[in-house]
């Protein structure tokens, strides 16, 4: 499991951890049932405080991404990938709607918007 922490980021460190673990789970890099390093080990590896990793794990647990067994550690929870995918897709639709509204406001035609999307997607 790879986690990269940026100290200059505006995003709090615990959020950087939760986001990166989440995306590892969603991308399938971390499979269901995989054990995660203990929060103390993770704190040491990332050279950050224990309370930060503790918070990150708590958030992940709350969001249903991982579960903890006292004395055994934390594990990747079973993910209903279909539902997550649907949720994500809904978010993408909403964001695209906003893009379309903005494009209409400045009179940007569909083909130009498509071109723009294509360039950005391939980047």
């Amino acid at each position: 499991m790879q986690i990269i922490i940026s100290n200059s980021s505006k995003e709090p460190i615990y959020e950087q951890i939760t986001n990166q673990i989440k995306s590892s789970i969603l991308s399938g890099e971390l499979q269901e049932g995989t054990s995660l390093p203990s929060m103390r080990q993770l704190a040491k590896d990332l050279q950050i405080s224990v309370i930060t990793t503790k918070r990150a794990y708590e958030e992940l647990e709350k969001a249903g991404f991982i579960y903890s067994i006292v004395g055994k550690g934390s594990f990747v929870a079973e993910q209903n990938l279909e539902i997550i995918r649907e949720k994500k897709q809904r978010v993408i639709e909403e964001q695209l709607n906003a893009v379309i509204i903005n494009s209409r406001e400045i009179g940007l035609p569909l083909d130009e918007l498509q071109q723009l999307l294509e360039i950005l997607y391939k980047e």
Binding site: S38, R40, Q41, A43, K44, Q47, I48, S49, V50, I51, T52
Partner: peptide, 24 residues
């Protein structure tokens, strides 16, 4: 701090030391 039973209390006026590892 790995085993979880130990507690560390330390004073400092070099606060950058704490940004990294202090919990409280």
């Amino acid at each position: 701090m790995l085993d979880g039973t130990r507690t560390i209390f330390f004073s400092t006026h070099i606060t950058t030391d704490l940004d990294r590892i202090a919990d409280y």
